[in-house]
């Protein structure tokens, strides 16, 4: 039943796992854009920016993930349909399930990533920024050459945790109809009436995803901190 043959669900489950990987990764990237914007608005010192950043972070950290995903999915589809009708497209314009799912995961992840980036930015020694200005770097170059590499270094452990969270939030987006791992397991469980086998298989695949991506984050952390090692060594 869980095999790879004609009647087997093996391929479907693996395809579901890959979809989970893809949607979580896209969600993490969307979250990194949102998160760095919020971190920037909080660090900028503008009162309005900081208020908006705070409101966003506390709202999406305070609401159940399931609820956020509902609203993102139905809200974005309703919005798109309304806009479509304004420009003369008849009927329903749906947001693709993948986009809605990734957006849902990303909106939540962004709220947490903002804190990670903010903490990492504050950990940069002020002298480094002063030195960069002193040698005449303009803002974009300083951001690319000085800030981003160091923020990433400090942020990697935190991002590794948030990656785990994104992976598991993606199990809640089956409401959008996307056939990721959780939905595949649920559909398989319902169709064959063998839920235990399917949830165990799902468990195994989630753990495999975790294991593989954990190794990746470990390697990234090692690489990002190689300069620090030399300093202490």
């Amino acid at each position: 039943m869980l095999g790879f043959g004609d009647k087997g669900w093996g391929l479907a489950l693996i395809a579901g796992a890959l979809m989970t990987l893809a949607v979580s990764l896209t969600g993490l990237l969307i979250g990194s854009v949102l998160g760095s914007l919020i971190a920037w608005s909080k660090l900028s010192g503008h009162k309005v920016g900081a208020t908006i950043g705070d409101a966003y972070a506390s709202l999406f950290r305070g609401l159940p993930e399931l609820l956020v995903i509902y609203f993102v999915y139905f809200g974005s589809s309703a919005l798109l349909t309304a806009v479509g009708n304004l420009v003369g497209i008849e009927g329903f314009v749906g947001v693709p399930a993948f986009a809605a799912g990734a957006l849902g995961v990303g909106v939540i992840s962004g709220a947490y990533q903002a804190e990670v980036y903010r903490g990492a930015y504050l950990a940069i020694a002020p002298g480094e920024l002063e030195a960069a200005r002193a040698v005449g770097m303009h803002r974009l170059l300083m951001f690319r050459r000085i800030i981003v590499p160091q923020v990433l270094r400090y942020a990697i452990p935190g991002l590794g945790n948030l990656w785990q969270v994104a992976l598991k939030d993606s199990s809640l987006i089956s409401v959008t109809g996307l056939t990721e791992l959780m939905r595949t397991a649920q559909v398989g469980a319902g169709s064959t009436r063998q839920p235990f086998a399917f949830y165990l298989a799902g468990l195994g695949l989630y753990l495999t995803l975790t294991f593989v991506t954990d190794r990746f984050f470990e390697a990234a952390e090692k690489r990002a901190t190689r300069g620090l090692k030399r300093m202490h060594g």
């Binding site: 999915y73 309703a78 349909t81 009927g91 329903f92 109809g177």
Partner: peptide, 17 residues
């Protein structure tokens, strides 16, 4: 078309079906 129960009413009201 197939639709999860959770999205049934929003889907009807938004015109998906």
């Amino acid at each position: 078309i197939a639709q999860d129960w959770d999205g049934m009413i929003p889907g009807l009201q938004a015109g998906k079906f």
